[in-house]
Design a protein around this nucleic acid. Structure first.
Lengths: 348, 348
DNA sequence: CTGAAAGCGCTAACAC
DNA sequence: GTGTTAGCGCTTTCAG
């Protein structure tokens, strides 16, 4: 039960060295290259260390070696389960590999992204995993590059950077084809602030391409800037003229609010209206109707980001764009998506 | 657009000192006690630092001062939005106060809690915010105490420790009274593994007290150990003999699955069955039916934990149990909760 | 108001 | 296989 009552002040390598009758260097070796130490001393040192609960001081080690075994993580917000699930994956993978993480959230503000990177740099992280608003114009990435600090983008997808992501555009194109095959003709896309997210832009581009390919005219884009008003904004569209038969939402949080908006408007989902999301957050599967969505492996996106970054670090180099990982997505057809209503189903 | 192309290797205090024609000590003072430096040199030093993008090396500073301005955070999992929302609050508050965080997740395993604390200690955190399985028996807390490392518990509620939490037991007692007033007689509680969470135990205790106070006999406790089987487990109860008219769930994630279970069993919520949760996660409000739940201020729990901890640190002492903060909860009556079905409503 | 010097705890040459 | 030594970048007495 008790953990040992000996040590009061922080224990240092010198304390261990003294008690083990060896030099501090040998203690250091015992931890860093156990093979270079005789079995006898190794066991003695380990024994004493365990007894006193000694762990090498990370700051001193970092200062000396210039490596911290800490990864910075920059995310828009943890209030969106997508990023929380991803961070969970990052936390698990880093723990396995003996790394720690220092996360910061930006609330989608680019100035905060830059500040966060500067901060992480001074904290001495070995590398950074980040989700930026727009990879093409990010000053945060610029700073990282200028400082030659290794990084991996998660969710963002850009040919000039190492990224772990899914094919946002393809996914939406495919989705539109599926909806078209279900008889939908009036399909509207709903998204948050387009300029705050390159993913949303890519998804929108895929949507437009898909509509074109299906020979359909897209309904006007519905932008819902704030969560507070999202339900009202969507309801307004649903009550307007020539209401869509399908709402394609740029993420699951919006899709869930669209579900609510449909309810408010007394529309049945999926009988009167089909709704789809994007992200595959866990909760979506437990909803009624179960949310149809393009599932991306959020935990794995985190995991792979860590693995890609750490692999490069071990090889003493930054990850590069050519190593980008494209993870596969899939469409989960939940109950929120079905055939277009009969009277709307102009199967030409 | 460009961020400056000068510096290649990491810039140190010496570089700044040289260019500013002052000693390193003066540069240090400029950052740490600006008042002790003449306005002229201060501005010169700041100018050059900004120009070169210099930021003091955190490891060196930590090693020297024995303070890192980093807080450790230990949470069960980020897959539960409760903790993700809380971490968001922690991240925001720490950023405001000039601290950084190092989170770790435990997946509710006590050995992992202990390991995480040991790890954070060697990383030199100034303090730790944690959610443990059981505050009364936590070895992680024991280690923290033995090392005199400041900490604050979030969500846990125990008289011997500094905690930021809500009155779990009271909340459930009150809830039961509300349900009784709505005519419910057969009320069952549903929770995860009781032994993995002292909150769940407290909520259960409050439930039992409330039932007693209302003169009701509680239906057998429904324990749903795994998320994978939760819906089936709950459905089984709903299909069994003398089905409850109300399901009181120990958290929102379980409540959402209970909603699903009701649907599977072709029960209408709230007409045939009332369901309540606990936590007040954001998504609950957007569901249909909107989830009735005991709302706790997750973001604020994080914020206050940080503030309590940092205040104590500034005063050079650990937070103590007497400073514990009890935040207020409230019952949000969403559409998932209503009067008991008429035929079951034995208003004596 | 500013400088010189010591040292936080650790690791990595380099000797032995 | 082990010890000696220097120094990572910074802050902090202590002088001046």
């Amino acid at each position: 039960m008790t953990i040992r009552s000996k040590p009061i002040g922080p224990i240092s390598i010198l304390d261990i060295a003294e008690r083990a009758n060896v030099s501090p260097a040998t203690v250091s070796r015992t931890f860093n290259r156990p093979a270079d130490v005789s079995k006898a001393t190794r066991e003695r040192v380990h024994g004493i260390s365990r007894e006193l609960g000694y762990r090498p001081n990370a700051s001193a080690r970092t200062l000396r070696t210039q490596r911290s075994r800490v990864l910075g993580v920059i995310l828009p917000t943890l209030d969106n389960p997508v990023f929380a699930e991803c961070l969970q994956g990052i936390a698990q993978a880093t723990a396995t590999l003996g790394f720690s993480i220092m996360p910061a959230t930006t609330d989608y503000q680019v100035e905060v992204e830059l500040e966060a990177v500067a901060n992480l740099l001074s904290l001495g992280v070995d590398g950074t995993i980040l989700v930026v608003s727009d990879a093409a114009t990010s000053r945060a990435l610029e700073l990282l590059a200028q400082r030659h600090s290794p990084y991996v983008l998660a969710y963002n997808r850009h040919p000039a950077h190492p990224c772990v992501s899914v094919a946002n555009d393809t996914a939406l194109d495919e989705l539109v084809q599926k909806l078209a095959r279900l008889g939908h003709r009036r399909i509207a896309m709903v998204c948050g602030q387009l300029k705050a997210s390159d993913r949303a832009q890519q998804r929108h581009a895929g949507f437009m391409a898909g509509m074109r390919r299906a020979g359909l005219t897209p309904a006007p884009l519905v932008e819902v800037p704030f969560v507070e008003t999202a339900i009202d904004d969507i309801a307004r569209v649903l009550l307007g003229p020539s209401r869509p038969t399908a709402l394609v939402c740029s993420n699951d949080l919006i899709a869930i609010r669209a579900l609510r908006a449909a309810h408010v408007c007394r529309l049945r989902v999926p009988n009167d209206l089909s709704i789809t999301g994007f992200d595959g957050i866990r909760t979506g599967r437990d909803l009624t109707p179960a949310l149809s969505t393009i599932v991306q492996p959020n935990n794995d996106i985190g995991r792979h980001s860590v693995e890609l970054l750490v692999r490069a670090l071990h090889e003493g180099r930054p990850p590069n764009a050519a190593e980008s990982i494209s993870l596969s997505h899939h469409f989960f057809r939940g109950e929120s998506c079905a055939h277009a209503p009969a009277n709307d189903c102009a199967t030409s």
